[in-house]
Design a protein around this nucleic acid. Structure first.
Length: 224
DNA sequence: TCATTAAATTGTT
DNA sequence: AACAATTTAATGA
């Protein structure tokens, strides 16, 4: 996925839109590039844009007062996020940080609410999106704290390939083990170890800066 | 196009 | 955390 047009094409919510809708989406949405580790949005800022990932990878993080951060979700290219805070017209509760150099689309809240008022397809997409995310967070609470690192890595990877949330993503993702470490919350060494376990189990294939998912269901169930 | 070198990533202790 | 090995990207003939 290279351009904003590619992102629109891959986004299911554009399917039911009229040409008038699409025109306004195109004319009001801004595309920006972020360097690795740069903040796409800060906790504390007003939530006035809905964010789509055109290229790269973004992680949603929560910072404790002591400065320690925890990653809640990894957002690959093709994903849209931030609708929760936009819908409630509130201050952002979490930051979004580019894992590697990334290009994102920023849709103004005015356009977002206009789509919400006028497109059933858009509403349906948000419903699915919010429901899938609820499932994601429930799974974190239910399992992830208790699971060993191998299984946490497996689930983080499985979450990144959720076809409902990220329909554009292929079964491959470009990602270094250090970057994955930031997402999972484990050391690079431990990630390397876990990836080898998952590779031997036939669930994924590990190459230089590249992870290929062979068995998505197996990844989801790993550790049960 | 191929060889050399530097930089980034991964494996190991 | 430090070091070695491997892969990719960049450079220049």
């Amino acid at each position: 996925m290279r351009s904003f047009e590619d992102l629109l094409l891959a986004s299911p919510w554009t399917q039911g839109l009229t040409s008038e809708h699409l025109k306004r989406v195109r004319t009001t949405t801004i595309v920006r590039d972020f360097a690795a580790e740069a903040h796409v949005c800060h906790a504390g800022d007003p939530a006035n844009v809905w964010v789509g990932v055109v290229e790269g990878l973004v992680r949603m993080v929560s910072m404790s007062s002591s400065g320690k951060s925890m990653t809640f979700a990894a957002l690959p290219s093709g994903s849209w996020f931030g609708e929760g805070s936009v819908l409630k017209r509130e201050i952002r509760k979490h930051s979004a940080i580019a894992v590697r150099p990334s290009r994102v689309a920023l849709m103004p809240d005015a356009t977002f609410f206009w789509l919400l008022d006028s497109s059933i397809a858009f509403n349906r997409f948000l419903l699915v999106q919010l429901n899938e995310r609820l499932g994601h967070f429930m799974s974190i609470v239910e399992h992830d704290r208790l699971l060993e690192p191998d299984a946490r890595v497996a689930r983080s990877l499985a979450a990144m390939f959720n076809p409902q949330l990220y329909p554009g993503t292929k079964h491959q993702i470009e990602l270094s083990q250090e970057e994955l470490g930031h997402i999972v919350g484990a050391s690079r060494q431990r990630i390397s170890q876990a990836l080898q376990v998952l590779d031997k189990a036939g669930l994924i294939k590990v190459d230089y800066r590249m992870i290929t998912v062979l068995d998505l269901e197996g990844l989801r169930r790993f550790g049960d």
